[in-house]
Simulated assay, not measured.
Amino acid sequence: MKKSKHLIIHADDAGLCHSENRATMEALKKGIVNSCSIMVNCPWFYEMAEFARENPFYDYGIHLTLTCEWEKYKFGPVLPVSEVSSLVGENGYFYRNRDLLREHAVASEVKKELVAQIERGLRFGINPSHIDSHMYSLGAREDLFDVYKDLGKIYNLPVLLNRELMEMVGLDCNQNLSEEDLVIDKTHYGNFDYFKEGKLKEYYTSVFDNLVDGVNLILIHPAFDDAEMKAITINHPNFGSEWRQIDFDYFTSQECRSILDERNITLINWKDLSK
């Protein structure tokens, strides 16, 4: 893997809602997006789990979730709130951001909830290729990151570990990574400035010219800019419905496929990393 440039094009947030599911399913079928991860605690999880059972040849991870960033669309833990009370606010939903999670979460309750999330995915027939972290919230504190890595060992699954994501959440890479860890060499993801300036597509195209030797990962969030997604992402243009439609349109386009072919880029998925 270190001798050439490999790429995973990965869709986060499957299971979040019907719009996200439809877009993720279609993107997987078109073959450029070749990996996704599923939020098992969200209302539309069952639809995505059913798709995964019926289409086991695609690559599915469990998107471990401890935060809910949306203003009016709320979700919380799989376990009863009474068992993981440090993970929720006064109304029983997950906190909106990493800072609140960092302040309140008890590590033992985090592990208990995340085990329940993984077990729910397994119980519904998902055969996960990896686990990753919604909003990379498990990087909020070192002890939570330890839980994250430990779950990979318990379930014998690769865990999304990457220096760019760790730096984004303020976690010291040197203190929290070891030589035995499987680390994604480079993670690429759009930022709000690209979106505001109408240059997300240009950014994604530039990624294909800036891959590093080893394993590269592009994180995207495909969904449709429809009434459902607009309502969920109200007052939240960062990774909002318009952004997610751009992700879907670009990564299902012939333009994107042609660029991949022209650059002779090798697509892999998390299953390949486990071989």
Rank of each mutant, 00 (worst) to 15 (best):
L87S: 10
N55V: 11
G76P: 04
E54Q: 15
I184A: 00
L151H: 08
I131S: 02
N191H: 09
R141E: 08
Y95P: 05
S133D: 08
N191L: 08
I131H: 03
F145M: 11
C173I: 11
G76F: 00
I184M: 05
G76E: 03
S85I: 12
A140R: 01
T65Q: 11
H134F: 09
I118M: 01
V169P: 00
A140L: 10
R96T: 13
Q117N: 12
F57I: 10
S108C: 10
S137T: 12
V147Q: 04
A116R: 11
Y95E: 06
R123V: 00
G152I: 04
E103L: 15
E179Q: 10
Y58D: 03
I126Y: 03
D143N: 11
N127I: 13
L182R: 12
H188V: 10
E69V: 10
G139L: 07
P56G: 01
E90T: 13
E113M: 10
V81T: 13
M135V: 04
K149F: 07
A52K: 01
T65V: 14
F192E: 07
G139C: 15
V115F: 09
N91W: 05
S85Q: 14
P56N: 07
D99Q: 13
E180W: 01
F145S: 06
S85L: 09
E54F: 09
N162W: 02
L101Q: 12
V106M: 07
V84I: 14
E119C: 04
C68Y: 00
M135D: 00
W70C: 15
E54W: 06
F51V: 03
K112S: 14
G125I: 07
L177P: 02
S108H: 09
E109C: 08
R163V: 12
Y155W: 08
G121Y: 00
E103T: 14
M135C: 07
F192N: 10
Y93P: 01
F192H: 13
N162Q: 02
N174R: 13
K153M: 10
P158C: 07
D59N: 15
